[in-house]
Simulated assay, not measured.
Amino acid sequence: MNKKEKVLEIIRRLEKRYPDVKTALNFKTALDLLVATILSAQTTDVNVNKVTEKLFKKYKTVYDYANVPLEELQEDIKSINFYKNKANYIKNLAKVLIDRFNGELPKSMEELVSLPGVGRKTANIVLWNAFGINEGIAVDTHVKRISKLLGLTENTDPEKIEQDLMEITPHELWGKLSHLLIMLGREICKAKAPNHKECPLNDLCPSSRI
């Protein structure tokens, strides 16, 4: 089985286990998702969802984020790791969206990564979950670790891993692959205690035989 065949089999099996896979972050608008994804760096989605439950009722447009005093926004998200930096990113990107994009969220990778605090992972999450656009594969810690365990990449740099996965995965499945691997990492293939017996990819994973 070559890598292209292997990744299709991985997706087929994981789709059976996670038929309605999507981001665990709660959102109603693309702006909501962008803010939530920025907040999610180095913290859990559960923590983010607790904060955004109130946050998204208060901040509904880019103008709300742009006009609020920085200290007030920091206070609203202070239970999140690195909240001061993240508040800065959110305020600055809101201003950029107003100045350069008429307050609308762009729908391309190039434009999204030009926003403060937005890298390829965040852009990929927003593009696929909010717009159904596949421009790349979001590589978080789960995707990075599991794709290497499965022998899909030898790289450790997220952008190189993304390129490796894009080469072997059908374009229309890029967004789905990322979220399937994330679900597997959260439920079964945990870094400290992987549950090989319950893993649907057991026979495809070299690490299960170590």
Rank of each mutant, 00 (worst) to 15 (best):
R145A: 07
R145T: 06
I146K: 11
I146T: 09
S147H: 02
S147M: 00
S147I: 02
S147E: 03
K148N: 15
K148H: 13
L149F: 10
L149D: 12
L150G: 09
L150R: 09
G151I: 02
G151A: 09
G151T: 03
G151Y: 05
G151F: 05
G151S: 03
G151L: 09
L152N: 13
T153L: 03
T153M: 02
T153P: 10
T153A: 05
T153K: 08
E154Q: 14
E154R: 15
N155T: 05
T156H: 12
D157I: 06
D157K: 07
D157M: 00
P158G: 07
E159Y: 14
E159S: 12
K160M: 07
K160G: 04
K160C: 07
I161N: 08
I161V: 15
E162M: 12
E162P: 06
Q163L: 12
Q163G: 06
L165S: 12
M166Q: 13
M166Y: 04
M166F: 05
M166I: 13
M166G: 13
E167T: 07
E167I: 01
E167L: 14
E167C: 01
E167W: 00
I168C: 04
I168S: 00
I168Y: 03
T169W: 00
T169P: 02
T169D: 04
P170C: 00
P170H: 00
P170G: 01
P170A: 02
E172L: 06
L173K: 15
L173Q: 15
W174M: 11
W174D: 08
W174V: 03
G175H: 06
G175I: 10
G175C: 09
K176V: 13
H179V: 10
H179G: 01
L180H: 05
L180P: 09
L181E: 04
L181R: 09
I182R: 01
I182Q: 10
M183N: 15
M183Y: 15
L184Q: 14
G185F: 03
R186L: 09
R186M: 12
R186F: 04
E187C: 04
E187Q: 08
